[in-house]
Amino acid sequence: MDEMSHHNAALVQQTNAAIEQTEAQAVELDQIVDVFRVDRETQRSIVKPERGARTLQLNLRGERLPTPGNAALARD
């Protein structure tokens, strides 16, 4: 049991280190892409996917999803 606890603690430390590294990379990426600016007219013309990548793929092919959203989730 003690060995398992040490193993789990090591996994938590590795996960925390990976999170910190990912956050640092995200900040660096934000700084890199911050130099790009898009004017308002271009922003209006950008097509935003309605429900993610799959919907965008189907829309580009002229198809539609069979249901409007995730049928597994009940509406509130």
Score class of each variant (00 low, 15 high):
residue 14 Q to V: 04
residue 34 D to S: 15
residue 21 Q to T: 10
residue 3 E to L: 09
residue 71 A to R: 09
residue 1 M to Q: 13
residue 67 T to Q: 01
residue 37 R to V: 07
residue 41 E to V: 12
residue 39 D to W: 11
residue 29 L to G: 00
residue 16 N to W: 01
residue 59 N to P: 02
residue 71 A to Y: 08
residue 59 N to R: 06
residue 28 E to V: 11
residue 24 A to R: 14
residue 36 F to I: 05
residue 2 D to S: 09
residue 28 E to I: 09
residue 62 G to T: 03
residue 38 V to I: 13
residue 40 R to Y: 14
residue 10 A to Y: 05
residue 70 N to F: 13
residue 38 V to W: 10
residue 22 T to P: 00
residue 57 Q to P: 02
residue 22 T to G: 03
residue 74 A to C: 08
residue 57 Q to D: 05
residue 25 Q to V: 04
residue 22 T to R: 06
residue 43 Q to S: 02
residue 60 L to P: 12
residue 27 V to K: 15
residue 19 I to D: 00
residue 44 R to K: 10
residue 37 R to L: 06
residue 44 R to C: 01
residue 31 Q to K: 15
residue 2 D to V: 06
residue 54 R to W: 10
residue 76 D to I: 06
residue 28 E to T: 10
residue 7 H to A: 04
residue 56 L to V: 04
residue 65 L to E: 15
residue 30 D to Y: 15
residue 39 D to I: 08
residue 33 V to E: 03
residue 53 A to F: 15
residue 20 E to S: 00
residue 50 E to Q: 06
residue 52 G to R: 07
residue 47 V to S: 02
residue 30 D to P: 01
residue 11 L to N: 09
residue 72 A to C: 05
residue 20 E to W: 00
residue 6 H to K: 12
residue 73 L to E: 10
residue 3 E to G: 04
residue 65 L to D: 09
residue 32 I to P: 03
residue 41 E to N: 13
residue 26 A to N: 05
residue 60 L to M: 13
residue 69 G to V: 01
residue 68 P to F: 12
residue 9 A to E: 10
residue 2 D to F: 13
residue 24 A to Y: 14
residue 2 D to L: 08
residue 63 E to Q: 13
residue 32 I to G: 06
residue 3 E to N: 09
residue 6 H to L: 13
residue 54 R to P: 02
residue 63 E to M: 09
residue 17 A to L: 00
residue 64 R to M: 10
residue 58 L to T: 05
residue 50 E to Y: 05
residue 42 T to I: 02
residue 66 P to V: 01
residue 62 G to I: 03
residue 31 Q to I: 11
residue 76 D to S: 06
residue 7 H to D: 02
residue 69 G to M: 01
residue 41 E to Q: 07
residue 63 E to S: 08
residue 67 T to I: 03
residue 25 Q to L: 09
residue 65 L to Q: 11
residue 71 A to F: 14
residue 58 L to G: 07
residue 54 R to Q: 07
residue 18 A to I: 14
residue 2 D to W: 13
residue 28 E to S: 15
residue 3 E to S: 07
residue 13 Q to E: 15
residue 19 I to C: 01
residue 59 N to I: 02
residue 73 L to F: 11
residue 19 I to T: 01
residue 10 A to R: 11
residue 41 E to C: 02
residue 74 A to Q: 09
residue 68 P to M: 09
residue 62 G to R: 05
residue 35 V to E: 05
residue 29 L to K: 01
residue 42 T to P: 00
residue 73 L to D: 10
residue 76 D to Q: 09
residue 13 Q to V: 07
residue 41 E to H: 11
residue 4 M to Q: 08
residue 75 R to F: 11
residue 21 Q to E: 13
residue 1 M to W: 11
residue 36 F to R: 04
residue 64 R to D: 07
residue 73 L to Q: 15
residue 17 A to V: 00
residue 23 E to R: 11
residue 76 D to H: 08
residue 52 G to F: 03
residue 36 F to P: 01
residue 33 V to S: 12
residue 32 I to C: 09
residue 72 A to Y: 15
residue 8 N to F: 12
residue 20 E to H: 00
residue 68 P to N: 12
residue 1 M to N: 12
residue 46 I to H: 12
residue 35 V to K: 06
residue 37 R to M: 06
residue 20 E to Y: 01
